[in-house]
Amino acid sequence: MECQLGSRLLEDRWLSVKEIAKYLDVRTETVYRWLGSEDKSMPGHKVGRHWKFKKDEVDQWVKAGGAAEGVK
């Protein structure tokens, strides 16, 4: 039971720019570009000086076409 709970906690944790870039298989520069672009509006949350992400929010954004090339 503890192993399953631990896995669920890891899945629900906040991810860094580096981690979300690795998850999406893109460069960190691409993540920052998506964050700075009004038309892309990647779902990120500023925590102090750092950006943090919830995996499920990013998954929904990608499925809605937010990361598609050429989208304006």
Rank of each mutant, 00 (worst) to 15 (best):
L5N: 14
A68E: 12
K54W: 13
V47C: 13
D59S: 06
G66P: 08
W51F: 00
D59P: 01
G70A: 14
G66E: 08
D25F: 07
D25I: 01
K52E: 13
Y32C: 04
L10A: 09
L9G: 09
A64M: 13
G48Q: 04
G70M: 13
E57Y: 05
D25S: 04
A64I: 11
V71E: 00
Y23F: 09
V26R: 03
G66T: 07
K52F: 08
I20Y: 02
L5M: 12
R27G: 12
W14H: 02
S37Y: 05
I20P: 03
W14A: 06
V26H: 03
E57F: 07
Y32M: 10
V31E: 07
G36P: 14
S7L: 15
L5I: 15
V26F: 03
R13C: 03
W14T: 07
W61G: 00
W61V: 03
D12Q: 15
G66A: 11
K22P: 00
S37W: 06
L9V: 14
A67Y: 02
D39H: 07
E69V: 12
V26P: 01
T30E: 07
R49P: 06
W14M: 05
L9D: 14
G70S: 08
D59R: 06
V31Q: 13
H50K: 14
R33H: 12
K22F: 04
A64L: 07
G66M: 06
Y32R: 15
S41M: 04
D39V: 09
H45L: 08
G70T: 04
Y32K: 08
L9R: 15
L15T: 00
R33W: 10
R33D: 08
Y32Q: 09
P43T: 05
Q4A: 15
K55H: 01
A67M: 05
R13I: 05
V17P: 02
W51C: 00
I20R: 01
K46S: 02
K63F: 05
R13T: 01
E69N: 10
E38P: 11
V62Y: 00
C3P: 06
E57S: 09
G36K: 15
A67C: 02
V26D: 00
D25V: 09
K54Q: 13
K52M: 06
L5K: 14
K46G: 01
R33E: 08
L24T: 00
K22Y: 03
E29K: 10
K22M: 07
V47I: 14
K63G: 02
H45G: 01
K46E: 01
D56M: 12
A68V: 09
K72T: 11
C3S: 13
G66F: 02
V31A: 08
V17A: 10
R27Q: 13
M1S: 14
M1D: 02
S16V: 08
W51R: 02
L24P: 05
L24F: 01
G70L: 10
G6F: 09
E38R: 14
M1Q: 11
A68I: 12
D56P: 15
Q60I: 12
A21P: 05
R8S: 10
D12T: 11
D56C: 09
L15A: 01
T30F: 07
W51S: 00
H50R: 14
A21N: 12
E11Q: 11
R8Y: 06
R49Y: 08
L10S: 09
W34V: 00
L9M: 14
A21L: 07
K55R: 14
G70K: 04
K63D: 05
S16A: 11
L35C: 11
L5G: 11
R49D: 07
K22N: 10
T28Y: 11
S7T: 10
E29N: 14
Q60S: 09
